[in-house]
Structures are given as structure tokens and as C-alpha cells.
Design a protein around this nucleic acid. Structure first.
Lengths: 246, 246
DNA sequence: CGAACCCTTGATACGCTTCAACAAGAGTGG
DNA sequence: CCACTCTTGTTGAAGCGTATCAAGGGTTCG
């Protein structure tokens, strides 16, 4: 069976393009992407830059731990971080996989409690931390920024609601189908290039790697997809959508 | 088998205590509870009262429908509303059950899209709707209110994160055990009085009513609980906690 | 080369659902 | 008042979906 290019995944973390804002490194490129378009105003970016701290975290390290007091909002600019619950030693029950740029934990800091999960780096990542105390001040001065934060949290709620719906109402096959459809980038057409190992894909779908393998085989036999290592070509989008749709 | 007092559930929706603020009915009692303690300031309450609209919705009616444009944040003051996906006719796949006072949909309006789910009234409910446009203005004037909203959304995120964790990592028995423990009100000691039908409890736990029945019987046989109609007495909190804990 | 991973495949086990039947109120109308 | 129906919960039998366990092959790395 074809399992070539298994390690091609790791390559994407090799080079960090040197910022073209050489003078002041305070603003991290990609931070904009966390908030999404439209771009933040210059004043907002400057104010944020004074607050936030950027950090480079290597594979296997923890960004934060479960129960650890959450004083900062945390985002991933670059790389990938897994959210889950750590077991004994290196064991780690992965639940969600955050690829930068995206928020990693936008909620815990507001409640003054601890982080609800462990966060472990899967692909060397650039992590931003924004102290909630300072952010509070900014939200008073910048209505636009306030709106962005509300929207970011709202999106988090909607995503999680969708996830729970999928877990409650869909079987593994349907979850896989809809996951494949969401992974399809508008640029690459019908090709999905996996950015993580299959066992991590499986974890996010709440199935075992064995089941994922079997399901992919089933979809292949049915002529809906074509699997070549870490590239999956979607051959019949209509059928996949029908399958995914509840 | 004992299935007495089956309809005692419906009784709690009979009387709405007339407000003791007879002069101005603008402020709805229970609205405070949606935000939780500490109480809102008088200025905040007055400003909110100008914006929000209270509505009484009867059993079976829809509070909002999936896809319907979301211009308001929605909360339940009183009664119970089910969140899920409506099927053909009266069919309704229940996913989450909101008992007032609590937020029903705090996220959709911020994104300007539609509601993600259908909301159907299970127990005659008082529903509050707060236009997001007006709320935006208030958030500029009232830092405390802003903080409350952030915390409310953060709590929503944490709850949903907990739910997905449970669905991914726990089996039905564990989910039931932890649900029973959360339902235990501090006042009533070890007694849990079900506020909904067992089939709705089952839906929230993502199991069938048959399975719930069997699981309750198992826990009863094991001497952990005692089931009398719609009252469940928790006989061994320690064992239940051990069972619920991952 | 062997060791450590990752994925795949097969056999088996188990949890939960589905389907069907039944018992126990609650409401309805004669 | 009783017969009737509707609803809810319970119980049993059978079946499906997914996990678990075990084995084997491919690739990378020391």
C-alpha cells in the first residue's frame, strides 16, 4: 500500500520567513490573520503590540497546562498546537487541533480560572499571549477592537456548537465526509493535502486511526475519493456533500 | 414499575409571579440571573430595559428557526427551551436543553449570520431579546456590562468545550454520572428532581431513552442511586465522582 | 543493519441503537 | 363510572458501528 511521503508533513515547519518589517519586530506578521479581515487600524496594532508577547514553542512542549491559571488570551500564529488532556508521561489524548493563525484559548482568561485543557505543540509554533488585564483597557478605547473580540468569541461558540452537533447526530462516515469538505482549500481545487498525521485527523473526528483507515478505504472503493499518501483527491463533491449533510 | 408523578413536570410553568415593581414593567425579574451575580447597576439596568423586548412563548412554538437572520441576543428567563434541529413536521432532534435563567443564543447575532439551530419551547417560557445594534452602544458606555458580556460568552465557550470533551472521551455511563452530579442543587442535598422528561435527559446525553433507562437500572443495582419516578437520590457521591472522572 | 514510527488489515469484542411489545398513568367522551 | 386512546417509561432480542488487540509492511534515522 502507498504510504509514501509520510514525513513530508514535518517540512512545513522548517523556515520562518523573516519579517520584512525589519526595524520594529514588535508586530508579529500573521497576528492580523488571527483577527481576520479587515485589517486592524494602525493605532490598534500599536496598542496591541505593547501588550502582547510572542513566544516560539518547540514540538512536544506545552503551551499551557490544564488547570494552570489563565491570565492571557492565547493564539497560534504559525505552526500547530493540539488541545486535549495529557495522561501519564508522553500520553496525550488529543481532542482538537489548532493550526495557525487562530485563537488557541480565547475564553479561559476572561473567567479568571484556569485553562480547561492541555495545549501541546505538534508543529513548532509561534504563540502570542495577550494579557486580559491590558486588553480590557484597550477595549474601552477601541470600539472596533471590541467588536472583533466579540466576533472572535462568537465564532468560537459557533464552531464548538457545530462540533457537538456533529458528534451527537452524525456517525463517523458523515463526520469524515464533512471534514474532508471543510479541508478543501479554495485554491487547490479538489485536492486535500493533509497537514497533520492521520492519527491526529482521527482524533479530531473522535475515531481511532484504524477506523479512519477503513473509512477512507470505503470511500475509495465507492469512487468518492482517491487517496495517495497524504493527499486526498475528492472525486465526487456532490456525493460527499449528500453524505455529510446530516 | 414506578412511573408515578410523570406529569408533575409540567406544573412548574403555571404561574408567573407578578412583578413587585408595579409601576414600570420594563425590567423583567430574572434578567439579573441571566448575567449572574453581582447585580447590574441601576444605570445599566435602565439602559438595557430600553433596548430589550420580553416575549412569552408557549409550548411547542419556535423561539427562532435555523437559518433565520439573528439580529438579537436571546435569553430564557423562565421556562425551558430546546435547542436542536427540526425535522419533518413535529419531529425535532433535541441537542441541548436550556432552562431559564440562561442565555439561549449569545453568539449568532454578533456575526450577522443566521441562527445555527432551531429553538423550540418545551416549557412555556419568557424570552428576552436584546438587539445587538443597541447593545454595541451600551458596551461603549458601560465597562462593567462589557465585562459581563465577555464573561458570559467565555462561559458559553467553556461549557461547550466541556460537552465536546465528554462526547469524545466518555462513554454513556460516565456522562450520566457526571450529569447527575451537575444536576444536584446545593440546597436539596443528594436528591435530584428531574425538570424535564427522561427522553430529554437522554437527548442531552446523546443516548436513547432505552439506554438511559438501562443505565439508571444499572446504577440502581450497583447501589449508587435510588430512582423514584422523577426523583433520583444519589446514595454514593464518591463512587459517582470516580465514575464520572474520565 | 536494527530500532522506532506510522499506517494498514484482519479477527474479535463490546457499547449502544433499533425494533417490538408491554405496563402505567392522564385525558377524553360516552 | 368505564372504555378508549395517547403518552411515557421499561424491558427484551437482535444487529450495527466502532474499539480493541494483534500482526505485518513501509519509511526514516542512527
Amino acid at each position: 500500500m502507498d504510504t509514501t511521503s509520510a514525513k513530508s508533513i514535518a517540512r512545513s515547519s522548517s523556515g520562518i520567513s523573516s519579517s520584512h518589517h525589519r526595524a520594529a519586530e514588535v508586530w508579529v506578521p500573521g497576528w492580523d490573520a488571527v483577527f481576520g479581515p479587515p485589517r486592524l487600524s494602525e493605532a490598534e496594532r500599536q496598542a496591541l503590540a505593547l501588550l502582547l508577547r510572542s513566544r516560539r514553542v518547540m514540538v512536544g512542549e506545552a503551551v499551557f497546562r490544564r488547570g494552570q491559571s489563565a491570565t492571557h488570551l492565547v493564539a497560534v500564529v504559525d505552526g500547530a498546537v493540539g488541545l486535549g488532556v495529557a495522561g501519564e508521561g508522553p500520553a496525550f489524548h488529543l481532542e482538537r487541533n489548532i493550526h495557525g493563525p487562530a485563537w488557541l484559548d480565547i475564553s479561559s482568561a476572561w473567567l479568571g480560572g484556569g485553562h480547561g485543557q492541555d495545549a501541546r505543540v505538534l508543529l513548532a509554533a509561534t504563540v502570542l499571549e495577550l494579557p486580559v488585564d491590558g486588553l480590557r483597557q484597550l477595549l474601552g478605547r477601541f470600539p472596533d477592537l471590541r467588536e472583533r473580540m466579540m466576533q472572535a468569541m462568537a465564532r468560537a461558540v459557533q464552531n464548538l456548537t457545530g462540533t457537538t452537533h456533529d458528534l451527537m447526530a452524525k456517525d463517523a462516515q458523515k463526520r469524515l465526509a464533512s471534514w474532508l469538505l471543510t479541508q478543501r482549500s479554495p485554491s487547490s481545487g479538489a485536492d486535500v493535502a493533509l497537514k497533520e498525521r492521520k492519527r491526529e485527523v482521527a482524533a479530531q473526528l473522535a475515531i481511532t486511526p484504524e477506523t479512519l483507515s477503513r473509512l477512507l478505504r470505503q470511500l475509495m472503493s465507492a469512487g468518492l475519493i482517491e487517496v495517495k499518501g497524504y493527499t486526498i483527491r475528492l472525486l465526487n463533491l456532490g456525493a460527499l456533500q449528500t453524505m455529510a449533510h446530516d
